[in-house]
Amino acid sequence: MAELIAKTPCEGLLPLTVGGVSLTEENPGVMTVVAPFRGREAALAQAMRAAHGVAFPAPNRSAVRAGARAIWFGRGQALLVGPEPDPSLAEHAALTDQSDAWALVRIEGERVEDVLARLVPVDLRVRLFKRGHTARTLIGHMAGSVTRVGPRAFQLIVFRSMAATLVHEVRTAMEAIAARGVLEG
């Protein structure tokens, strides 16, 4: 009988540090897309708050509490990251387990905004894009999710099948920013 060995999306590719910016994989556990049924948004928000401590996020926002992160994930969708979704949510929303579908990475460092500015067509400077702000946007040519999780840290999510491309794109941007840093002294 063959024994299957689970691999994370970025296994063998990360961690990586270039020019003071680090890229690491996060293994957040369960990932569930929560899509409220029509007219049930308020009831869902209440159920999510009761069960997981985080409400259904408004567009472009995310919330985190006690290991549960709710990220706005598109029109009428949120990604619940961390816990197994409480069964009470299923009364108000379609729940889809997508734990193995996405690659999650954390990028952190002094010049992280400069690195991401090369890849993401959204202004991510902290003045406009604060902790907890999120965007469904492009990362290079990939559709993905970008969330600020700290003063110099972001979480990036792309399809699992694009994990290697993500690492390649981000590494290239990190190397370019590091090279400019050397030139500028």
């Binding site: 472009n60 029109r75 067509p121 959204v122 965007a135 946007t137 492009l138």
Partner: peptide, 11 residues
């Protein structure tokens, strides 16, 4: 109307 003003590349 949902995301705010975005670059044409996203569309």
């Amino acid at each position: 109307p949902i995301c705010g003003e975005r670059d044409r590349r996203e569309f």
